[in-house]
C-alpha cells in the first residue's frame, strides 16, 4: 500500500528524504526564526555571571561521543562564559570518551581567550567508578586525581594552590548525555553542599526538572535549544544558534506528518466500516 515507484522506495524512505531536506535547507538558507530564553537557562547564566573573578568551577564531561552535536555547543557556551569572566576551570571526565572531547573543548575555547594551561584551566582526565570519584573529590581532589591528563603532578600547577575539595569550588557543571548529574546531586550536592549545574541532552531534561523544582539545581541548560539560548545571552552565536532554524523546520515537518498520519488513519477506518 505504501509502495511508491516500485518495491525499493516506500513512504519511510520519502519521510527520511523530507527530514534531510527540512534540516539541510535552513542550514544553507537562513530563516532567522525567533528564540526565547527560558528561566532555567537564565538562572545558570546569572549564577555564572555573579561569580567573582578567579572563582573556580569544576566541569565534568560526562558523555560519550555519540551525542557530540548536543554536548559540544553546550560545553562551548559555558566555557566561553567562564573564560570571558576570568573564572578558572578544572575539567574532568567520568565517562571515558568524554576525556578526549573535554580536553579538546578546553584547549580550543581557552585558546580563544588566551588562557594558560595550569594557571587558568586544568584537565584532570578520566576516572572510572564515578561514585567513588565524586565522593573522593569531596575529601581531596588531589587524592583522586594525583596527576592530570598529561601525567603531571597536579600540585605543580598554580590553579591548584588554593583548591583542596568542593569547599573551594563555586559549582560543579556536569555536561552529560545520561543521568550523571543525579549522581553529582546524590554524592556531591547532598553530602558536601556544592552547587550543581546540569547541561544535558534534551532527552534528559524531564529527568532533571523535579530536581530543579526542588531547588537542588542552580538551573538547567538542556539540548541544542538550551545551548542556543545560552549563546543568545552571551551575545556570541555559535553552532547551536545556527542549528535552531533547522530544529524548528524539522519539528514543523514532524507535526505535519503526525497530522497527515492521523487523517489517513481515520479515513481508512471509515472506509473499512463502510
Amino acid at each position: 500500500m505504501d509502495a511508491v515507484g516500485g518495491k525499493r522506495i516506500n513512504i519511510r524512505h520519502i519521510i527520511f528524504i523530507l527530514m534531510a531536506l527540512a534540516v539541510a535547507l535552513p542550514l544553507i538558507f537562513k530563516l532567522g526564526l525567533p528564540l526565547r530564553v527560558t528561566d532555567e537557562v537564565r538562572d545558570v547564566y546569572g549564577f555564572i555571571d555573579s561569580l567573582p573573578e578567579n572563582s573556580t568551577v569544576l566541569i565534568s564531561f560526562d558523555h560519550d561521543t555519540s551525542t557530540l552535536p548536543e554536548m559540544v555547543p553546550l560545553a562551548e557556551a559555558i566555557l566561553r562564559h567562564c573564560f570571558r569572566n576570568n573564572i578558572k576551570v578544572i575539567g574532568l571526565a567520568l565517562l571515558a570518551e568524554g576525556a578526549a572531547v573535554g580536553d579538546d573543548n578546553l584547549r580550543r575555547i581557552a585558546g580563544e581567550y588566551h588562557k594558560e594551561y595550569g594557571r587558568d584551566y586544568l584537565f584532570l582526565g578520566f576516572r572510572p567508578q564515578f561514585t567513588v570519584a565524586i565522593l573522593s573529590m569531596g575529601e581531596d581532589i588531589a587524592r583522586e586525581f594525583p596527576r592530570d591528563y598529561r601525567g603531571v603532578d597536579i600540585h605543580n600547577y598554580p590553579i591548584m594552590n588554593n583548591i583542596k575539595n568542593y569547599k573551594d569550588i563555586s559549582a560543579v557543571i556536569s555536561i552529560a548525555d545520561g543521568d550523571m548529574p543525579l549522581y553529582w546531586i546524590n554524592y556531591a550536592q547532598a553530602r558536601y553542599g556544592v552547587k550543581v549545574i546540569p547541561e544535558v541532552t534534551a532527552v534528559m531534561a524531564t529527568t532533571m526538572y523535579p530536581f530543579l523544582q526542588s531547588g537542588q539545581l542552580v538551573g538547567l541548560v538542556a539540548g541544542l535549544k538550551g545551548a542556543a539560548e545560552y549563546e543568545k545571552l552571551l551575545g556570541k552565536p555559535g553552532l547551536a544558534s545556527k542549528g535552531m532554524d533547522a530544529q524548528s523546520t524539522a519539528h514543523i515537518l514532524i507535526v505535519l506528518l503526525i497530522i497527515v498520519g492521523n487523517v489517513v488513519y481515520f479515513i481508512n477506518r471509515r472506509k473499512m466500516r463502510i
Partner: peptide, 13 residues
Amino acid sequence: VMARVSLLIGRMQ
C-alpha cells in the same frame, strides 16, 4: 524527538 533531530543537525552541519 528534539534530541534526535539535534543529532541529525550536528551531522548535517
